[in-house]
């Protein structure tokens, strides 16, 4: 569904990622593993159409995302969801946060009339908002202010916020690196739920056990390039690349 081909991106003069090729299909979880600072975030930001790489192509379905018009790219961008390492919630209630993606997809005219209904207090919360919050177990916290949530809850809201508008691709950048085991488990269950819904998930993580738990396929990112990509079991049990094997065995220390 989404495919990178020969992608290189350079900040200033030093390449951050080099000649990357990777794909994600519907209903599949791909984990990108690698040590910190290796370019996982850059790779996800390229997938999120946040940054345009200097070389290589990115296809979404049949469309070359940097070869189409701005309008088309916005439409494609709106089929992608992303969760950052930090929750990055807006200074508003949980409900408003999760509703945001739906709101920006509406026409300005509808948004203005929505604003009016809000003043008149006549509109309810969209069903998908409550439903997405239900996936991360926060269905009851709709009216709570985002700033009063714990770190784990905030990250779960952040996940629901990306899920609420039913994206085709969901990008997760180290979503559980700051979380306790209980919140981590909730997020991992939500990843499984996203996969069941047919969403293609790309999760960057430095936790190899997490990759083993959630991913169908694993891509190993070392020294700016993907050294190995394949089914999770194969990569962990019999890696073909020597550097990958060393990294998985913990010998390759960064």
């Amino acid at each position: 569904m989404m495919e990178l081909d020969g992608v290189t991106h350079t900040y200033d003069t030093a390449p951050v990622v080099e000649d990357l090729s990777l794909s994600v299909e519907s209903g599949e979880v791909v984990a990108i593993i690698g040590p910190s600072g290796v370019g996982k975030t850059t790779l996800l930001r390229i997938l999120a159409l946040f940054i345009e790489p200097q070389t290589g192509t990115i296809r979404f379905g049949d469309t070359d995302v940097w070869g189409c018009s701005d309008g088309e790219r916005l439409a494609l961008r709106r089929r992608i969801g992303m969760v950052f390492q930090e929750a990055s919630l807006f200074d508003a209630t949980v409900g408003r946060n999760v509703e945001y993606g739906l709101k920006v997809r509406r026409s300005w005219r509808d948004r203005l009339s929505d604003g009016l209904s809000e003043v008149l207090r006549s509109n309810g919360t969209p069903e998908t908002v409550e439903e997405a919050l239900g996936v991360v177990g926060l269905g009851e916290q709709l009216d709570q202010h985002a700033k009063s949530l714990s770190g784990g809850e905030a990250q779960r809201v952040s996940f629901a916020r990306a899920l609420a508008y039913d994206p085709d691709v969901l990008l997760l950048d180290e979503p559980t690196s700051d979380l306790d085991p209980r919140n981590t488990a909730v997020i991992e269950e939500a990843v499984a739920e996203a996969r069941n819904r047919g969403i293609g998930v790309v999760i960057a993580t430095h936790d190899m056990h997490q990759a083993e738990r959630v991913a169908d396929r694993v891509a190993v990112l070392l020294d700016r390039e993907i050294t190995e990509v394949g089914p999770t079991d194969t990569v962990f049990e019999s890696p073909a690349d020597e550097r990958t094997a060393k990294f998985i065995d913990g010998e390759l220390v960064y």
């Binding site: 992303m82 950052f84 990055s88 807006f90 945001y100 993606g101």
Partner: peptide, 15 residues
């Protein structure tokens, strides 16, 4: 305003 929050508005589909 944190860059993360602005980025969030962008990735959630904001213009």
């Amino acid at each position: 305003v944190e860059e993360n929050v602005r980025d969030a508005a962008h990735v959630l589909g904001g213009t």
